[in-house]
């Protein structure tokens, strides 16, 4: 089962509180997840803490699943950070700002685990 979702990113208090501690486990926990409405999670047959693979035109990333019924169905939220940015749009449409909200994404369950921050960044250096 694959969910076609609209992906946005944004600030959370935990992400903000670990802004200057990005090598910490707390930052990883604060950012390496994707929030979906629990109905969407059910459809994907995923429980909180399971892993999701989020795939867009620009890349793919594995993150933890989290329920948030404040999200309408079909809207996926990943806190701003390296995991979200692995799949958001670099296209600025001529005005400087990349596409950090509103990127079509395909989301499905996965057995893979999220990369930690350093491993994720290393993948850019080694690319």
């Amino acid at each position: 089962m694959t969910l076609n979702a609209n992906l946005i990113s944004g600030r959370t208090a935990q992400q903000g509180a670990n802004l200057e501690a990005k090598t910490s486990r707390a930052y990883f926990d604060a950012c390496a997840y994707c929030e979906l409405n629990s109905k969407d999670l059910e459809q994907l047959d995923v429980a909180e803490g399971d892993c999701l693979k989020v795939k867009t035109e620009f890349g793919e990333i594995v993150v933890f699943a989290k329920a948030n019924n404040g999200n309408p169905q079909g809207l996926a939220f990943i806190p701003m950070g390296p995991w979200a940015n692995a799949v958001l749009s670099p296209e600025t449409h001529g005005c400087g700002m990349p596409g950090l909200k509103g990127v079509p994404a395909k989301i499905k369950r996965t057995k893979e685990k999220p990369l930690d921050m350093k491993s994720l960044m290393r993948s850019y250096r080694e690319a």
Binding site: S89, K118, Y124
Partner: peptide, 29 residues
Amino acid sequence: AHFPQKALRQLAKIPLIQIDPYANPTTEL
């Protein structure tokens, strides 16, 4: 942490000087 992947690939390729109190994803590049 805050630029999309395509921009980071270029940052990773070129010499990068960082000035910061704390280690962060940019430090890795």
